[in-house]
């Protein structure tokens, strides 16, 4: 039951994009069209789960036993960066279809704070292996959900008459604010 609460809270209540504010560069960058948003969302789910597993293992089995926690930032970013490169190479070799679908977005993910943020949160909250899996996958799904919803809004925004000064990023941010207000409504569901 606790895992279920964790899942609901990570997907809706503490939505990583709208409540924790992580991963905004791609959020505003690639959300102009639904197709690109779908590619990005899939790539993020994939990389977040994978990197959470790796960073958690390295932290629990190497950094903590040897009192090297201060190296956390450095190791995590290196793991994520090399993992992304590795995934890119493997996909290129093994699955051309998947590579064509995700390829461009994979390179962008290295500097996505959502991936790094999930890795850091997992370690900070001292989660076990199963909790880590549930938390990272549901966080990533929550991110994908918010990204897709937002991309839908932005496609519609392009054909609305917006005052000239508010066009582009400004109105996108206000839209995100209203969406975030809607997500606050989930707060009663789980802590």
């Amino acid at each position: 039951m606790d895992l279920f609460y964790l899942a609901i809270s990570a997907t809706f209540v503490n939505n990583i994009l709208l409540a924790q504010y992580l991963g905004h560069c791609p959020f505003l960058g690639v959300s102009k069209r639904i197709e690109t948003a779908i590619g990005m969302a899939a790539a993020i789910i994939f990389v977040t789960i994978l990197s959470a597993i790796f960073t958690w293992s390295v932290f629990t089995f190497i950094l903590r036993p040897y009192d090297l926690e201060f190296l956390q930032t450095l190791t995590f970013i290196l793991i994520i960066a090399s993992l992304v490169q590795l995934v890119e190479i493997i996909l290129k070799k093994k699955s051309r279809v998947l590579y064509n679908a995700l390829g461009v977005y994979l390179a962008l993910i290295t500097t996505n704070c959502a991936v790094m943020g999930v890795a850091l949160l997992v370690v900070r909250k001292e989660m076990g292996f199963v909790e880590m899996l549930v938390f990272s996958s549901t966080s990533a799904v929550g991110y994908a959900l918010a990204l897709l919803l937002f991309a839908g809004h932005r496609e519609r925004l392009q054909i609305s008459a917006i005052p000239k000064s508010m066009q582009g990023t400004a109105i996108a941010l206000i839209t995100a604010g209203i969406m975030s207000l809607a997500f606050i409504g989930f707060q009663g569901m789980a802590g």
Binding site: Y21, K164, M166, A170, L173, I174, G177, I178, S180, L181
Partner: peptide
């Protein structure tokens, strides 16, 4: 509302708008 999550988006959005207006 302003210290919660949505306030952040709206504040920055409006500031961005004002800044664009001023630049224009």
């Amino acid at each position: 509302f302003l210290v919660l999550a949505p306030g952040a988006f709206v504040t920055i959005g409006i500031l961005l708008g004002i800044q664009n207006l001023f630049s224009r």
